[in-house]
Each structure stands twice: as C-alpha cells, then as structure tokens.
Design a protein around this nucleic acid. Structure first.
Lengths: 187, 187, 187, 187
DNA sequence: AATGAATGAGGCTTCATTCAT
DNA sequence: GATGAATGAAGCCTCATTCAT
C-alpha cells in the first residue's frame, strides 16, 4: 500500500522535526508510529533512506506550493513576497526535514545526495525564475542574480535560528520586512 | 601548559572542520594529534567539551578580528564591507566549528548552550554596532535594524552551502557582491 | 518470552555468585550464556538492572521458601530452626546475589534501592512473625524483638565469611548449633 | 617521614569510610588530601596497598583497644560487654575500612589476604579469650565456643546495615541489648 | 618529595540492521 | 505484512598506573 508508506512518512516527518534526526533512533520512530522496528524496515531500506524520503517529500510539497504561486497573477515583487511567505513557513514548521540540505553531505550517500541536490536546484530555480522575470520587466536591476538569489535564500533560512513562536514579531511581520529587504536588495 | 591545550584545540578544530563533529571519533582526533585517547581526556572532560572549546576558540578569535576592524577608520559601509570579508573567511575556513551555532542545541548541554549563545550575541553585536553607526550618520536608513541584521547574517552564513574553492567567483568577488547587497538592503 | 529472561537470570546469578559483581563484565556474562553483549541489553537495560533483577529474583524465591515453612505445623522453635536452615542455604549458595543488601547503596540507584529495601523488609518480617508468635505462645521472652531479630540475621549472614564446604562442621550441624544459640537468645 | 604516611592514612581512612572504596578514585583521595596522584604513589604502591594499610591500621588500633580492656578487672560478662561496645564503635565509625574483611577476597591479593586474615584472627582471638575465660570460671557454658563466637561477631557486624545516628535506639542502648543477647546465648 | 602529563587496557552502552517465523 | 529477538560494530569514557623532570 502506497497509502501506508505515505502515512508513515507524514508522521516520521513530524517526529524528526520535533526531535532531530541524529537524536532519534529507529526504535523511537517506530514506537511513536505504534509499529516495531522490523516493520519500519519493511517500508524503508535504511534510516538514511527514511530521512531521504522525508526530506524529498517536504521539499517536493514546497515546490508545488511555490509553483502555484509562480503561476498566479501579480508583479514580480508581489509574487516574490508570497514565495517568501511560503519558504518561511516551511523553514519554520518543517525545520529539520526541510533544512536538511544544509547538512546533506553528512547524512546522505552519493546517490541520494545527487537526487537531493537536484530537487533543491529545482527549488532554487523557482526563485531564479521570479527574479529574472523581475529583471526582464524592469522591476529589479541586479546583475549576478545567481549570487543574489543565494544570499537571499540564506537570509531566509537563517530564520530558523532565531524565530520563536510568540516572539516580538509575528510571522507575517517578518515576511513583510524580509520581502522589503529582498526587493531593495534586488534593485 | 596552557600552550599544549591550545595546540590541541587548533588541531582539533582543523580536524573537525574537515570531517564534521559527529563523523569524528575521539580516537581519530587523538591519532591525528599523535596522542592517545586517554591524553585527550586529560585536557578535555568530554567530546562535547572539546567541541565546545573548539567553537568558542574560533568565535572568540573572529570577534577579536572584527573588533579590530570596528575600531579602524572609515565609513560605516567601508567597515561593514571589511567585516563581511572576515565573516565569510571564517564561515568558509572554519566551517564546522564556526557554524556550530546552527546546531548548538543538538550538541551542547544547558550550561554550554548559554555560554555559546552569549558569545554569539557578542558576535552579532559587532554587526549591530556598525549598522547603528551607519544609521546615526545617515549612511543607512533601515528601521528594524535587528531583523535586518539577522537576515544579513543568514545570507552570509549560507555561503558555506555553495562556496567552492576555484568556483566561478573568487572569494573577494563574493565579498564585493555581498557587501553591495547588504548596503543596498540597509538603505 | 518470559522464560528466556528467567533463564538468563538463573545463569547470571550463578555467574555473579561465582565471580562477584564488580569482577564480572557484561561481556563475560554474555559469553557464558552463549549470547552477545547486545542480546543481553535486549533483556536488561543496564548492568545495574541485571544485578537488581538477579538479587530480587533470589530474595523473592527465598521469601517463598520461608513462607511455606511459616505456614507449616510446629512450635515456634521448630519452625524457626527450619527457617534458619533455609536462610543459611541461601546465604551460602547464592552468596553474592543474596547478600547484596549489604552493599546495596553502592550498586543500586534510588529507585532500585527502595524496591530492594522493601523486599528485604518483607524478608525480615517473616522472621519477625515467627518470633512474635513464639513470644505470644510463651516459647520466647525477648522484649525488643526487633533488635534481637537484627542481631540474629547478622549472625546468620556472617556464615558466608567463614563457611567452607567440607569444613569441620557440616551444614546441618551448623544449623543445629545456630538454632540453639538463637533460641537461647530469645528466652 | 613515617609521620606523613600516618597522616595520609588517617585522612584516607576517613575518606574511604565516607565514600566507599570502589567508589573513590585515587584522584579524589589525592585531591581531598591536597596532594597529587603522583605523590600518593610515592607513599603507597597501589590502590590496593593503600586500602590494605588503611584496613590494617584500623584493625590494629581496634585490637589495641580490646587488649586494654581484656587486661582490666571484671567478670567475663562485664569485660565482654565492654568489648562489644568497642566493636560496635569501630563497626559504625570505621565502617568501610574496618569491615573490609567481609569483602577481603575481592580487594586484596594473596599476600595481603594472608596478612589481613592473620590480623583478623588475632582480633577474633580476643573474643575467644574472654569467652573461654568465662567458660573456665563458670560464667558461660557453651560448647562449640568457636562457632558461637562467629555467630556473635556476625550479629555485631550486622549493625552497620541498620544503625542510624539519631535512630530509635542510642548506641549504648544497643550495646546493652546486644550484650544481653550474647551472654544469654553463651549460657 | 612532588608533580604534571601521558598511557592503555578495559568496560559499558547504543543502535542500525538482519532474519526466522 | 509484521514482529521479536539477536547481532556486532563502534564509540565514549574511566582510572590505576607510570615516569621524566
């Protein structure tokens, strides 16, 4: 059943986001899913495989969300702002699994690594697209758009380090500030 | 001898930066230092303690470097540019040990965590200082300087994810581009 | 299988009685049981946990044996004599595991300690019962029965220090002498 | 300096009585004595040697105390009572070092073991003496005095297991009760 | 007499993984 | 599909002991 696997994935993502990857044992993941270690291995070849699939699942979903926005109406700046909102949402809520790219080299094998990086390239491309659209239609001026994009994604991801629920700034205030920074930066 | 401990630290930093923390065993660190595990434990209580001291050592040095620049002559923009260069240097060269703040919660105990975060606050403050100096003398306009600073540091740190020696851009080109982004962003 | 655990327990008791607790490694216990260290840890959380369960197992069995006697027919003196025989049997044959109460504070954690002491209280109570029965029916006269009981148990346990198989006195001669002492002492 | 060694011994005894032998490292003993491990090894060949000397020191002193009493005036019962008081004092106050005979086989090597047991024999002989004196002058009647003596010493030593300062019974009440038991037992 | 430093053997424990049933 | 049991490699850490200075 593909269903079952997806269910496991969803729960596993939630667990890993809560307790971190290295800090969680297969035993614990299984326990929280009310299964045994053995069963987990029926669905996933590896701990690393489980992690890999969690990660891809989340990033894939994020991509879908971004694509939808990318296809909607609006100026580049407007769309970028919405994309920023999405990214921040994932970065905060799916912390561990989403942000695995940061530490991908530590956890994935060669084969996985390539696929992870490929998917992440896709992810980045969506930001690349909207930036170049903005450049084309005169909203943005940056040259070296690639470097700019990477700086921006870094700024966005970093939010994980300091964001606290019920902190001084609400999520949408952050989105608004960050979008401003980004747009300024791109001019 | 305090010297000896410092020697160990320097080497350990180098090793950990190369192989990652989790991926390095005490045995290996000892071996590379031509000592025995036991000796290592004479100087450091723990693996975690060793890591902690490595991290603090690097950050402390970075702070000293930044402070020197902060006390030199120049416009806020000029000084900020130099600071960006320093930060990038550390982020790239001392990758694993410098950037431990990202994963500090996974590796440090409560006591260590507090000290790590304290030192990191000091680090951030140096950037805060130059930004507010720029605001005061009219070079920069940002309100919400704190949030801006965090976005910026995120953007800078992210360089670890993609920088490759002998890549398309040389380190100083990156510094130059990044400084531009940052200054634009702060206007 | 609860059986398996019990099997392990029985063997472990035998080994520990032979080599002492501190002197026995998990490795060795595993080896004698023809298992691997890992398997041992499947059944027991800890070395300390294993020891704890060994101890409780033995004391529990001793209690059962004593209870049976306590419920049999006979004068208090007769029953006490039989109980002395049982106690001596355990003290000699299950030396290390039975007598762990002596050093319980060194080996058990708080939680275990409480349970160990609770079970041992139960054990003592059986002797308390027969003594007070004897007092009630006029066989014994002691006041301060509690203190007397402790003196007696001490005297009994001490046998571990000097008993040697094939020594001058046979086990049942010792039982007979000791019972006499005890009964005299209680008059 | 023999003085120095004796000083160390006295302190070490105190420390070991407080923290137990296995649970105390040479490092800790040295620290409490304001010396370094190295120095400790100047005075004692071994950890086991240190322990051995602590033990012998205490038992030797106890023997001296007992001998003095043995040479004083009084009925056998009177003298025995005083000896009980001494023994209990040592058993309680010098717990770990005095009572090492219980676990001597675990801690001492062959050579030490023989000397330990020899000294302990001396110790026992003092009790043997007073008992046989009592038998000779008609105060006591026991045959199998040796066995009786061992039972008695066991009863006395056991006090360590349950005695609590500020408990229900004061030390001298215990002495009085115990002496009564013993004298009854010997009649 | 004293010490700081180094050593190395040995023990405990964890955990991903496998596999027969 | 599921599970309980077993495995073994690997890592961390402790500590008595030694030794040059």
């Amino acid at each position: 059943m593909i269903r079952k696997k997806e269910q496991i994935l969803t729960s596993a993502i939630e667990i890993i986001n809560r307790r971190g990857y290295t800090g969680t044992t297969m035993e614990e993941i299984a326990a929280e899913l009310f299964m045994t270690k053995g069963s987990l291995y029926y669905y996933f070849k590896n701990k690393s495989d489980l992690l890999y699939q969690c990660h891809q699942f989340v990033v894939f979903q994020a991509i879908k969300d971004l694509e939808e926005i990318l296809n909607s109406e609006g100026t580049a700046a407007e769309i970028l702002t919405k994309m920023v909102a999405i990214h921040i949402e994932y970065a905060i809520e799916e912390k561990e699994t989403f942000n695995l790219i940061m530490e991908s080299k530590q956890f994935f094998n060669q084969e996985q690594l390539e696929l992870v990086q490929k998917l992440w390239k896709n992810y980045e491309q969506l930001f690349a697209k909207i930036i170049s659209r903005g450049i084309r239609n005169g909203e943005f001026q940056t040259k070296e758009a690639t470097t700019a994009r990477m700086f921006i994604l870094g700024g966005l991801n970093w939010i994980q380090q300091w964001y606290k629920q019920n902190g001084r700034l609400a999520k949408d205030e952050i989105v608004s500030l960050y979008s401003d920074y980004i747009i300024k930066l791109l001019k």
